[in-house]
Design a protein around this nucleic acid. Structure first.
Length: 640
RNA sequence: GGGGUCGUAGCUCAAUUGGUCAGAGCGCCGCCCUGUCACGGCGGAGGCUGCGGGUUCGAGUCCCGUCGACCUCGCCA
């Protein structure tokens, strides 16, 4: 863009070259001595080392250090500054008697000023070492200082632990990232990524990039769309994953592929979800599930060892999807604690409790429960809170009984105890394994809801009652997922994993007859109840792929329109292949102990996918819309 | 889209049933202080209680709406 309205102006004089350092303004009496004390700016490009690296071996040596003012302790005479960089802190000492010029400037320093100092390193006097600092044995006697840039007081302190509100931290993300825990998280993230690349390089994988501007996928998450300027009325989608590209790379014969790759999904966010996130994506040719699992187990063992110093020993336990759902109510069970789900429908059927009876009358209705050992001690308040929270996730309520002993007989108390007679009480105890002192929590509804409620209860009770052991790393493979899930509302099947997942060989024939019964060659890797990733062996035969598409209600025309390139590629000698994708962000989160995925992103977004720092997303100029042939259709807010 | 928690000084929070309730700690500013490292001492500044309505003699407090943050259900093949 030109800023000149008229063309005939004389050439502007060249702009003065900005000084290499922020001019240090001194009080008059000191400024007059500047040429003497500070003949040239300090050569900040010749840094000796990082702050926390200055140790006993530097004693007596001259050092040049750069960093930020972390803290100032001004005694009127002596001034101490903690200088901070990405390694940590070092104490600077300004002595008015030996270095009056530097001392005067030290008086002007404020938090987060960026400075460069030269001085000599001295061992701290006896008894004055600071054991909390890595460089606490020494200090730097500063002779010269340059203020490279100043800073207003930050809206929140740059400290290890802060409780500033997160929106504010995101608005000033660059300041938040100066904090040690944030730096540690991103540095750990780097180390994990590097370790991953080294590992796969060792195992003969090639990292190959795939497009971000690609084709919208019909199923799965909502796509982020990018309009094409060149072909009006058409759109790219940002990839939800490089799934098809990596399969095509197998067809190209690369045999072993990995990529640490950004993926995009336009869905509502959570504490462990961002709209753009990073996957470790891999694909291998001529493999079965066990081969992919072996590779991943090796990777995880190596990461755990190198990053955390923890030994884990493959192979990891395997669990079928059916078992996971039956015992844990979820396809990613946390096996660090028990609280397993028991089906008690048979006994419930004979209780005069309408909630149970109504549930059992429904199609695939059931009554299941979890037994909380010693849970009878839970207070009324705890139980009421639990009940309220259950309603919050959609349950009608929380039927429960406390198990007690009276005159040598086991009895139920409180809650729905009155619906049990001695006979059903005994049978319920047998079915649930209940002992006196326990609490039984029930859910009665259709299976899907019961699983949802009880898996939530399991996790919540375990957390609230501190049943989760610390420092335990329970890796688990969940496998034998169903191929499809039948949706009653629109009367069709949906892929549980994705439409390219191969059925088990022995279930191939079920695709013709009862596809809902077919199991897939799919596997998820779960750590402590968190899904780290999932993968599958893919379909490499055209006719099977077409059959699966058909079950998914894709007409041959739709198949061609959406996946023609894949079906075509499958004609040209595709190798059997399979792979997996792991959520890198979640992995970093677990390795660093971060509470939120936002803490392992450099610049994350809020729950509304908004960036308080850049204020993205934002409106664009009409001209930009015109260029893309777009017209907005934003509904006005309904007035009330 | 549903449920929950929250919004008061730069930051974190308090303010009894609606009634001297505009408060504290930290931070910030000024002065003093030569061994601090959560330095210390004295003094000071700083507020549209998210925003908009309503009830009331009176609202930070109650009601309605709205905006935003976080958690969660749906959603995320």
């Amino acid at each position: 863009m030109s800023c000149c309205a008229s063309g005939d102006k004389p050439p502007r004089p060249p702009k003065p070259v900005p000084p290499l350092y922020f001019p240090t303004r001194l009080p008059a009496e000191v400024q007059s001595r500047t040429p003497e004390n500070f003949p040239v700016p300090l050569p900040y490009n010749q840094r000796t080392t990082y702050c926390a690296e200055v140790g006993a071996d530097y004693v007596g040596k001259s050092v040049l250090l750069c960093g930020w003012v972390h803290n100032r302790r001004d005694h009127g005479g002596m001034v101490f500054i903690d200088l901070r960089d990405r390694t940590g802190l070092v104490q600077l000492k300004f002595n008015p008697e030996t270095d009056p010029g530097a001392h005067t400037i030290a008086g002007r320093l404020r938090s987060e000023f960026c400075i460069c100092v030269r001085g000599h390193v001295a061992a701290r006097p006896e008894g004055l070492a600071n054991p909390n600092l890595k460089s606490g044995m020494i200090e730097v006697n500063v002779h010269e200082i340059d203020i490279l840039s100043e800073s207003p007081t930050p809206r929140f302190p740059i400290e290890e632990n802060i409780d500033a509100n997160e929106e504010l931290r995101l608005e000033y993300r660059y300041l938040d990232l100066r904090r040690t825990p944030m730096q540690k998280a991103l540095i750990t993230r780097h180390r994990i990524a590097k370790e991953i690349r080294d590992y796969f390089d060792d195992h003969g994988f090639y990292e190959i990039e795939t497009p971000f501007l690609t084709k919208s996928t019909p199923e799965g998450a909502r796509d982020f769309l990018v309009p094409s300027r060149v072909i009006p009325g058409t759109f790219f989608a940002l990839p939800q994953s490089p799934q098809l590209f990596k399969q095509l790379l197998m067809m190209s014969g690369f045999d072993r592929y990995i990529q640490i790759v950004r993926c995009f999904r336009d869905e509502d966010l959570r504490a462990d979800r961002q709209p753009e996130f990073t996957q470790l994506d891999l694909e291998m040719s001529f493999v079965q599930a066990i081969d992919v699992q072996n590779i991943i187990e090796g990777l995880i063992a190596r990461l755990m060892k190198k990053i955390l110093g923890v030994e884990v020993k493959p192979p990891f336990p395997r669990m079928s999807y059916d078992q996971a759902m039956a015992e844990y109510g979820i396809d990613r069970p946390d096996t660090r604690y028990d609280l397993r789900i028991r089906d008690v429908s048979a006994v419930a059927k004979r209780c005069e409790f309408n909630v149970f009876l109504d549930a059992l009358a429904k199609p695939d209705g059931c009554v299941r429960c979890i037994r909380v050992p010693g849970g009878a001690e839970m207070t009324r308040k705890e139980i009421d809170t639990l009940t309220e929270d259950m309603k919050g996730i959609g349950a009608g309520g929380l039927p429960l009984v406390k198990v007690a002993q009276e005159n040598g007989a086991v009895v139920f108390q409180t809650g729905i105890a009155k619906f049990f007679n001695p006979q059903t009480t005994a049978e319920m105890c047998a079915a649930s394994g209940a002992q006196p002192g326990d609490l039984l929590l029930f859910a009665a509804d259709r299976v899907a809801n019961v699983c949802k409620y009880l898996s939530w209860l399991r996790e919540t009770v375990a957390k609230r009652r501190n049943l989760i052991p610390a420092n335990q790393w329970n890796f688990l493979w969940v496998q034998d997922f169903p191929m499809f899930e039948y949706n009653e509302e629109d009367g069709r099947h949906y892929a549980v994993h994705h439409p390219f997942t191969a059925p088990r060989d022995e279930d191939l024939h079920l695709l013709d007859t009862t596809p809902a019964k077919a199991k897939a060659k799919a596997y998820d890797i779960v750590l402590n109840g968190i899904e780290l990733g999932g993968g599958s062996i893919r379909i490499h035969r055209t006719e099977v792929q077409q059959q699966v598409f058909k079950i998914l209600h894709l007409t041959p025309e739709e198949q061609t329109a959406k996946f023609g390139f894949l079906l075509e590629a499958l004609r040209y000698g595709p190798p059997p292949h399979g792979g997996i994708a792991l959520g890198l962000d979640r992995m970093v989160m677990l390795f660093t102990g971060a509470a939120s995925i936002r803490d392992v992103f450099s610049f994350p977004k809020t729950a509304r996918a908004y960036c308080p720092m850049t204020q993205a997303p934002s409106p664009v100029a009409q001209a930009q819309l015109d260029e893309l042939y777009l017209r907005l259709n934003v509904p006005a807010k309904p007035a009330k």
